[in-house]
Design a binder for these strands. Structure first.
Lengths: 196, 196
DNA sequence: CCTACCGATCGGTAGG
DNA sequence: CCTACCGATCGGTAGG
């Protein structure tokens, strides 16, 4: 007989997803086993399946949660009425902060999405492409209004998003500068450039 | 009885390594099976082991080949006698071109090295750390001589290296700008910044 | 939530 | 270079 899902099930599932995000970050999706995850959660592997449907579902939940967060944010930015350069800065800071605060999930969504299965894979790729187009459009507006250098907007998006994902290295490093200082440095380098 | 290794063995091995780099890029190291690789090479899986010792050896060879290329290059740059900003530009262009021309190997070395087993893993990590320190030192020199903005040099290295690895997205994209134009755009964005 | 277990697939070996 | 096969491990299920 089907069990009735209670609030406790939901929070238990959230614990599992959080642990999965950590594990998928540490080992990579394919190298992470459900037995590894069970150890992290403190149950037997088989018990996980009382809360989740499959390993694939975990990856799916992580990736689409992150996608929703960024989609919601770019909606806000687009309708904010700010000038283009400010819109760009807001987006960039949001990416940096998500990478600082919501690190494992964002990392997994960024690097492990390719292990999604269709139809989720195609859906995710479309969302990703769409997000980048909207990001590029904001840069284009900045170029048109003369506040951003004449560069290829897609290349700029590519650089910015990958630069932010470099915060992974920062997380790993032993003697690291603070998150705030990192953020300001990244803003300076990407906006003002390296050359004086 | 042990077989005598001939020149043909070496080239066969190189074919296998090249195919492995492609496969590891496509699927990721863990998700790529030796049976997948065998199909790519056009033999049975078991036959691969006449040329290689293990799957791990393939990853090892790819990662250390790439590390050697970049180490050799930074040696040249350090002893070139060029001013710091030119040294930086030379390094950056080399990274971009390697990512354009030697794409699969560089990508695998960059993203899949974590699946190396010790003692290779530690060795690789040390080389990587060392390389980044030398790269940062060149940026520091540029800051001291007043030609580079006062930013945290480690953060700059992190941004630059990850931005370059973003060329992965460019390779995947369908209607892409030329490699030359991509290179110039990347140089402009990272050196002069996005803001006009 | 656990014990017991399954079919599939993995990297790799033996032997020719 | 192939056929045949191995032990280990995987994601997941049955049944309680």
């Amino acid at each position: 007989m089907a069990r009735i899902r209670t609030a406790k099930d939901v929070s238990r599932k959230e614990v599992i997803i959080k642990a999965a995000a950590k594990l998928f970050h540490e080992k990579g999706y394919k190298a992470a086993s459900m037995r590894d995850l069970a150890v992290k959660v403190g149950v037997e592997a088989a018990s996980l399946y009382n809360h989740i449907r499959s390993k694939a579902e975990l990856l799916h939940d992580i990736c689409f949660d992150v996608a929703n967060i960024f989609n919601a944010h770019i909606n806000d930015v687009e309708t904010s009425g700010k000038p283009p350069l400010e819109k760009f800065e807001t987006l960039l800071r949001f990416h940096i902060r998500q990478m600082l605060e919501n690190f494992e999930e964002v990392y997994v969504s960024d690097r492990e999405w390719r292990y999604l299965a269709d139809p989720y894979l195609s859906n995710f790729q479309n969302q990703r492409r769409n997000y980048r187009k909207r990001f590029a459009a904001i840069i284009e507006q900045g170029i048109e209004s003369g506040v951003i250098n004449k560069i290829d907007a897609s290349t700029a998006v590519l650089i910015v998003l990958h630069a932010v994902s470099g915060i992974e290295s920062w997380h790993r490093s032993t003697h690291k500068i603070s998150g705030e200082i990192l953020e300001e440095n990244m803003m300076t380098i990407l906006i003002d450039g390296l050359k004086k």
